[in-house]
Nucleic acid binder design. Structure first.
Lengths: 235, 235
DNA sequence: CCAAAAGTGTTATGCTTACACCCATGC
DNA sequence: GCATGGGTGTAAGCATAACACTTTTGG
């Protein structure tokens, strides 16, 4: 709608942006990864009122000349120093009173990153000295604002999309083993899957290319490495 | 979210809303119904620059003390005089430049209404004299702003949700025949469905109650009337 | 040779699809 | 009695789910 001010504006003789109420608008980013077979989210600790001492989803204001997604990418880079990460808009939260200071409308995105990238690019607490940490989505601390709802909703969406998209690959490096892929599915769905059925299903879609190489790790049989073929559909 | 000004604010010594850029925020509502076995959307004709003469999705500004959904309900009521209608948040559009006047971020909702309600409560062009009309989603006029994208996305979402929710019932009156229900599915999916398979599937879910009554209409066998049982799952 | 994870097939069950004819009514 | 939409069953193919043992490696 770019302003489908059709109603509001059509009736006004002249349009001046400052004539209308203007809430603050922020972008928050739910940054997810899989660490130690656990689904984790990056949270920052609040230092001041409101919700001092509670943990929050990182976010910030939108610049006037950047898109919503660009604001989310910028926020992600400030928090993790990573760019080019998978990002998707989740939902917009805007109840009056969700922030006690003023009316704030927040467009929430979620990002999925391969945890290998985190090790090489450690979390810094953005530009300020605030504390940041990776928390299990299944064991969260006290959260600020309506951030518990946001994380609930994120998990729902992630589970839904896992079934009919290839979103799961975003949590893995370019090359991965089938066991690693299965672990991603298991931690998101929060249940064990049958190895044979999982492999048959995922291989039957032809979205995986066998690299011919293997991953040697630990004292056991090496695992084949696969690559995601982006020229395909479904998992 | 709620100001996850964590980043932006945490670093600022004091927080004053007016220190940050504030785009305009509007709510637009894609109002859908099924008329004459066609999926239609309510559009309003723009009278002035920008996009004078183009058609637009109705929308308006958010009051400072109302929720996003309440703003959408208010907008819906202004356009159709209906309340208590099924509404769902679709997506938030906010590219700079989508409105040539100023930076506008629009939270888009979509509404599904039973076309019987329209007849009894005819469309009025909100509070102004603008023209309003129901257009087929499959045959749209020239649209203002990025509204063509918004309608594309609405259709995608509606198709997706039709498969795993009971959203389809929102387009029908309380009591309806199976043929009417099938017609809703056909027009949204834009393909013919097999009558026997459709009936078996929908009845197997036990979300339909047979009212015991029938609908007599035209010179042919009367059709059983069913009611949606909200205490159930899936279609 | 032991431990640990990788890899592999078969069967039963349920869901999806394709397909054609009779029924109840008004005129 | 004819036209119109309402209503019904069956068989084939496909996807899902349950289930246990062998292979390859390092130590």
């Amino acid at each position: 709608m770019a302003t489908s001010d059709t109603t509001a504006e059509e009736s006004a003789a002249t349009y001046r942006a400052e004539d209308y109420p203007r809430p603050s608008v922020t972008v928050d980013v739910v940054i997810l990864t899989v660490i130690d077979a656990d689904l984790r989210v990056l949270l920052v600790k609040r230092g001041r009122w409101p919700y001092a001492g509670h943990w929050a989803i990182p976010g910030g204001f939108i610049n006037m000349d950047e898109s919503l997604e660009a604001a989310a990418q910028r926020e992600l880079k400030e928090e993790t120093n990573l760019s080019g990460i998978y990002l998707e808009q989740l939902y917009t939260f805007g109840n009056p009173g969700r922030d006690p200071r003023t009316r704030v409308i927040t467009v929430v995105y979620y990002a999925l990153i391969d945890s290998a990238l985190i090790a090489s690019s450690p979390v810094r607490a953005a530009d300020d000295a605030a504390e940041a940490a990776w928390y299990s989505l299944y064991d969260l601390p006290a959260l600020a604002f309506d951030h518990d709802q946001i994380l609930d909703y994120t998990l729902q969406r992630l589970r839904g999309k896992l079934e009919y998209t290839t979103i799961g690959f975003q949590l893995l490096p370019d090359e991965f083993t089938l066991s690693e892929l299965q672990a991603v599915y298991e931690v998101i769905q929060h249940r064990r899957l049958d190895k044979r059925n999982f492999r048959r299903k995922v291989l039957s879609t032809n979205i995986l290319q066998d690299t011919g190489r293997t991953k040697m790790e630990g004292s056991h049989r090496p695992a084949r490495l696969y690559r995601f073929d982006p020229a395909a559909r479904q998992v």
